[in-house]
Structures are given as C-alpha cells and as structure tokens.
Computed example of a mutant assay.
Amino acid sequence: MSTEHQTSGISKSRSVVKSLSPLLKTEAAGSYLLCIGSKELMSFDPFLLLLEFTLTHELTDHPHRGFETFTYMLEGAQTYQDFVGNKGTIRAGDVQWMTAGRGIVHSEDKIYSPCGGLHLFINLSSEDKMMEPRFQEVVGEEIKKAEKDGIEVRVLAGESMGIKTPVFTRTPTMLLDVIMKPGTEWHQSISVWNNSTETLRFVLIAGQPLHEPVVQNRSFVMNTEAEIQKASEDFQFHKNGFENARPWSSQPISSLNRN
C-alpha cells in the first residue's frame, strides 16, 4: 500500500516502505480480513479502512457522514438501498461508490453465498464533509480495462495504461485490479515483476493525502470530537442531512432490482 499525490493522472514514484500482515476479525455481519483501519495502522491518509469481507446476513439500517465508500464485489451478489432512493444489486465484478457527505442511511444484504469482496473507506476533506450525498455504480462489463504483454488492468478508479475511468471520486483516488501472467512486468509509479510460475493478482490503491485531523466512530468521520457529537445529534433528531431518516426503513430483498 502506498499513498501518493496525484497530478493529471500521473503519480510520483514511491517505493515500498513497510509490509504488513492483515488481521482476521469477525463482526456481526460476517468475517472480515482487516487490512487497514486498526489503531496500529492509521497512517494511510486519506484511507480509513480496507476490508476483504464475507457477508453472511443483512446489515441493518445504519448512518454515515463525512467519507466515501467503495465496494468491489468479487463473488456472489449483494443488495443495497438508502434513504435517498438508490437501490439495487451489485454482482461479482461490479463496482459501487457512495459519497455519504452530510448524511446517508443505508443497508446491505447478501443474495446468496458465498458473497464477498473489497470494501474501502476514503476520507473527505473538511470542505466536502457536508456535501450532498452521491452514488455511482458501474457493472462489471462496463469497467474499462487494458491488456498488453500478459498484463490485464481493470481501472476501477483513476487511470492506467492509457485507460481512464468515468467514475468520479471526490477525494482523488486510484484503484486498479491487476492480473499478471508469469514472467511479466508492469510499471505504473511502482514496478512489479512476476517471476513466479503462477498468475499474480493484486489491487493497487493510491490517494491524495488530506493532511487533516481525523476523528471517527463506527458511523461518522469528522475533524473534531464536537463534530462527531453534532453528527450523532443530527441523526438522532433527523436534521442537517438526516431529515429522510425519520420515515425511511429498508425494504425486503424481494422488492429490490438492479437500477
């Protein structure tokens, strides 16, 4: 994992500073492979949390404020719905970006097992934390990819090998799914050689650091404790972005279809 400043789609070269082993963590909604986000691994500005998740049942209605989320489904299918009116299903290979901004309440549920993928939380700058929520979805067959000399790159966000995604991230982010055949090499700000006899697959994530204080709980990410308390109060009393939370509740899976 490297964090980089992006300018015009080109990032300065960075070397590997540290290699970290992921932590296995089990939560109410399923088993998660915790990559970043623990107290020991909080220096990945602007990233807050990266999970390789297995969803075992529904995540009940819950709020967010102050950050963006990225979901990349690797297997199975998952429904989603929120109080803004977005609802549908993402399947293996699909990508979903949600900018919570000033406030969103949503829920997620699996369609069938196994169901899992990658889930990334990305911080928003102080000036963007109270923006209106936004939602983007790209189905797998529409994700742009480049193939050359035994290298395949799916461009989930940002740019690679002359391919640029239409997905807009409020905090500049690059996210690439890279597959390298044996004996190949790939260069993009970093250099990777696959000298093994097996195919190599990895995700490269980079983002523009915000250099701002981070205070977070399970639902909200702000710059101060006072702002966290204010977010909790706004959600409790259905104001300042959470007005729709009062009448809204998630619907049964059977009523949901892909947008």
Results as ranks from 00 to 15, higher is better:
Gly116Val: 04
Gly66Gln: 04
Gly101Val: 15
Glu4Thr: 15
Met222Asn: 03
Lys148Ser: 13
Val95Phe: 15
Met1Trp: 13
Ser189Trp: 09
Ser255Met: 13
Gln136Ala: 13
Gly88Ser: 08
Pro172Gly: 00
Ser38Leu: 11
Thr197Leu: 10
Thr3Asp: 03
Val17Arg: 14
Leu120Thr: 10
Thr69Met: 10
Phe237Leu: 13
Ser191Gln: 00
Asn217Ile: 06
Val139Ala: 01
Glu159Val: 02
Ile190Ala: 01
Ala226Trp: 01
Val155Gly: 07
Leu51Pro: 08
Thr89Leu: 02
Ser21His: 06
Arg91Ser: 15
Lys87Asp: 02
Ile111Leu: 15
Thr171Leu: 01
Leu59Gly: 11
Phe70Asn: 04
Thr56Tyr: 01
Asn240Gly: 05
Ile253Trp: 10
Glu108Arg: 10
Met131Phe: 08
His187Ser: 05
Gly37Trp: 12
Ser250Ala: 11
Pro247Trp: 14
Met42Val: 00
Leu204Gly: 04
Glu75Trp: 09
Ser43Lys: 12
Asp45Trp: 03
Phe135Asp: 06
Thr184His: 07
Asn195Met: 06
Ser255Phe: 13
Gln6Lys: 06
Thr7Arg: 12
Gly207Cys: 02
Ile143Leu: 12
Ile36Thr: 14
Ala77Trp: 12
Ile228Asp: 00
Thr169Ala: 02
Asp61Gly: 05
Gly101Lys: 14
His211Ala: 04
Ala100Gln: 03
Tyr72Ala: 09
Leu41Trp: 09
Glu212Cys: 08
Val178Cys: 07
Gly37Ala: 10
Arg91His: 11
Lys230His: 04
Asp149Cys: 04
Gln236Val: 03
Leu50His: 09
Val138Thr: 13
Glu132Ala: 15
Val221Cys: 11
Val17Trp: 12
Asp82Trp: 03
Ser107Gln: 06
Phe47Met: 14
Pro182Arg: 04
Leu120Glu: 03
Thr71Val: 10
Asp234Thr: 05
Ser2Ala: 11
Asn223Thr: 06
Arg258Lys: 12
Gly140Thr: 03
Phe44Lys: 11
Asn194Pro: 03
Ser107Thr: 03
Glu225Thr: 08
Asp234Ser: 11
Gly88Leu: 09
Phe168Asp: 05
Gly117Met: 00
Thr56Ser: 11
Phe202Leu: 08
Phe168Val: 11
His64Lys: 05
Glu141Pro: 00
Met180Ile: 02
Glu4Ser: 15
Leu124Thr: 07
Ile36Pro: 08
Lys18Trp: 05
Thr199Ile: 06
Val203His: 10
Lys144Phe: 13
Asn223Arg: 06
Val16Glu: 13
Thr169His: 07
Met98Lys: 02
Lys145Ala: 11
Cys35Thr: 14
Trp186Glu: 04
Phe67Thr: 04
Gly158Ser: 01
Leu48Asn: 09
Ser232Gln: 15
Gly37Arg: 09
Glu108Cys: 12
Ala29Met: 01
Gly103Phe: 12
Gly158Glu: 00
Ala146Asp: 10
Leu59Asn: 07
Thr197Lys: 12
Ser107Pro: 00
Glu4Ala: 15
Thr69Pro: 02
Glu147Trp: 04
Ser31Ala: 06
Pro213Leu: 00
Ser15Phe: 12
Thr199Ser: 09
Ile253Lys: 13
Gly30Lys: 05
Glu212Arg: 07
Val155Leu: 00
Leu74Asp: 08
Pro247Met: 09
Glu52Cys: 05
Leu120Val: 15
Thr71Leu: 10
Pro166Cys: 01
Lys39Pro: 07
Leu204Ser: 07
Ala206Leu: 05
His119Gln: 15
Ala231Met: 08
Val84Cys: 09
Leu33Gly: 05
Lys87Ile: 04
Ser21Lys: 06
Gly93Ser: 13
Phe53Trp: 03
